[in-house]
Design a protein around this nucleic acid. Sequence first.
DNA 1: TTGTATGCGTTATCAG
DNA 2: CTGATAACGCATACAA
Lengths: 329, 329
Amino acid sequence: MPKEKNSPTMADVAREAGVALGTVSRVINGQQVGEEFRNRVEEAIRRLGYQYNSSGRALRTGSTNTIAFIIPNTINPFFALLVHHVNIALEKRGCKMLLCFTEYDKSREAEFIQMARQNLVDGIIALTYNPSLSIPEGTPFVTIDRFFSSSVPCIASDNFGGGWLAAQKLKEFGCQSVAFIRVASTVTNEPVKRKDGFVSACVDLGLPFEVMALEDGQPFSEIEHFLASHMQNGKLSFDGLFIGTDSLAWRIIRLLRGMGIRVPEDVQVIGFDGIRMFGDMEYTVSTIVQPVQEIAETCVSTVLSKHLSSVPSLICLPVTYACGGTTKA
Amino acid sequence: MPKEKNSPTMADVAREAGVALGTVSRVINGQQVGEEFRNRVEEAIRRLGYQYNSSGRALRTGSTNTIAFIIPNTINPFFALLVHHVNIALEKRGCKMLLCFTEYDKSREAEFIQMARQNLVDGIIALTYNPSLSIPEGTPFVTIDRFFSSSVPCIASDNFGGGWLAAQKLKEFGCQSVAFIRVASTVTNEPVKRKDGFVSACVDLGLPFEVMALEDGQPFSEIEHFLASHMQNGKLSFDGLFIGTDSLAWRIIRLLRGMGIRVPEDVQVIGFDGIRMFGDMEYTVSTIVQPVQEIAETCVSTVLSKHLSSVPSLICLPVTYACGGTTKA
DNA sequence: TTGTATGCGTTATCAG
DNA sequence: CTGATAACGCATACAA
């Protein structure tokens, strides 16, 4: 079954313009062509409504100007934002994006890498959770938030600095006793450093703290138990909480309010990510904001850079604090 | 510049297996091949780590198993959800998705359609705002929320029914006087029927109502003026509001609370779309929920259907009501 | 500067 | 059922 729609080809344009095939190609690729010839070709292109066929070019050049972006989904607003900025950054450089949703499925992560190579992508940007994912040789590969090896560039927020900043802010806002709560990740990725930075700052600042991690498989109610076990006379023994993500922070705030604890009056809460209502309105919670646009820009420029090997293996980008109404500032 | 990475080709596999090129192709495409030959080929494929090259196939067959999805962005959670479900639906049918973000730019919408055809996409799904967009011949085209002509299938929620449902719910929850507020769209798309359904229901149910539209270019403060002009003795003269989208509803609720009006105690609010916190948690406001997954499924099955011409030109899918805490139910 | 001819990897047609 | 071979549309090395 050949093509159904008979679009004109370069040969058609060449015939129409009375020039050679190669000349048409050169006009299209913006190479040196005599004024007279160029006009004839451009006229013919217009007349025929010619559009170049990217499969032919890809087959010939072995490159598609396409980057695969492997990510769990777009339902999570942080991922959605990432997709958006990655696409913008790619487009700015004349590249297309091949989106791959893994749904956190490790086997799908591997399948997509294979699929991406079948499609001759020029590079892969991946935010994955499979610790033993095998990185393909010969295709530029950049990861977000996950360090594989020194030969695979990893782009991330300054998670450690973010944890530090959270503790500093809580202290600044008058907290006397704080806690860090997160869901433990099965893989050791960059975001685990949020805890390290937080703990480090608490120690440095002389701020008493506790750490609670919801291990894999434990129900959310464990967090409820943790909080309940830190109540005395209807009062929580913490007046500041740093939570691993905005999403979890939101759930915990709901929980606290259900327990009759006011936020931020009784306890101040800082999350991580910088998620806004409806994507672009106010922050959902007070938060450490990830520089999503810079992350996307860096991923794209890195994966497209000619000399991947001379690129740093870990790039951390600066985070900022933003008030979302769950702190006293 | 030829390919940098020398992946094995079908010819390599054929040589390795000691068979003809055509036989390898037949094995890969699952056609009839003798048991012995099939084994030899499969063994060779494994040994060489062969992966088929989709450009070659595309060039030959004129089809890429790719559908272009044209949409403003993924920052808006509704669009993000749509992208997600469209991708799932496509993947289920072995198709890839070429995402095109228009950022509401009319000229970009047209450019993407051209780009999509250059890439030999097998079809286009588009959520656009350019009323005079020209639909390409020869490439299956399906729209969301926008009716172009009877030859271009349009998939949408039952916007009229949704408006009706909102009025019905407000009445059911005890409202005596209601209003509909929206930002007017410059294009006449399906969502404008939300007002029609609402008005129709109010009339039928004997519910007094008003309609307010923020025209193009008017600032948000116009809505503030509208509400302020309907205040008497610190009380709003409406006890129920239906807002064009959840996002606008959220902004208006913030506004109301700033004016000292309680939601839902003083005034109940219903939005439209069905946006959830963080994509999958509770609804942001009480809302008319669009069946996003069904919309996506329908778009995909329609655009891939062999006989596009025999498809209905407008398909409306049923909406539901969901409480998000801004109504008394 | 322009024309010509080859091959990229695949599918499909035609002989064997 | 299998082998050989001709396109598909394009970029490019080489010849003019």
